[in-house]
């Protein structure tokens, strides 16, 4: 079980690059977007689009999505009852803004790409140095295990 084959050095895998509205450590260039110039916003959005396009061309792009900041908490409330909804809770510490899924040959490559995405320009056209969370997907269990 696990990557216990003698060829276990290949780390072809999918990774999630997770971007947070809130909850990540503070970025270096931490000025929020509503205080940027129009050109700075345009440059930032273009950088993000170019990044995705580049990953499509390298055959490493799986998908990318952005999330609205406000959501609802939902839970089962017993047989025959409608689900209970609540929130949004302003005090929630961690708030996910969006993600990109990549399919790469190594962990090192995933780190490299996350670093590149974190360099997206912000205020004064300088890199944001935003913290992105990098999470590996579970893959299939390998066939050869002994």
């Amino acid at each position: 079980m696990g990557r216990d084959s003698i060829e276990g050095d290949s780390e072809m895998a999918k990774y999630l690059l997770l971007k947070h509205y809130r909850g990540a450590p503070a970025a270096v260039n931490d000025v929020p977007m509503d205080q940027w110039t129009q050109d700075e916003i345009t440059a930032h959005l273009q950088y993000m689009r170019d990044f995705a396009t580049k990953l499509e061309a390298t055959g490493e792009f799986v998908e990318g999505q952005a999330l609205a900041p406000e959501g609802t908490w939902v839970r089962y409330d017993g047989e025959g009852k409608p689900p209970v909804t609540d929130g949004p809770f302003a005090e929630t510490k961690d708030l996910i803004a969006g993600w990109m899924v990549i399919d790469v040959d190594s962990y090192e490559r995933a780190v490299e790409l996350a670093g590149e995405l974190s360099a997206a320009p912000g205020k004064d056209g300088k890199p944001i140095h935003e913290w992105l969370e990098l999470r590996p997907f579970y893959g299939n269990p390998p066939t050869i295990t002994e």
Binding site: K14, A57, T58, G59, E60, F61, V62, E63, D103
Partner: peptide, 15 residues
Amino acid sequence: AYLVPEATMAQRISR
């Protein structure tokens, strides 16, 4: 088979 979009796989093969 590898759970990636067809366009991505096409690019991977072409590269």
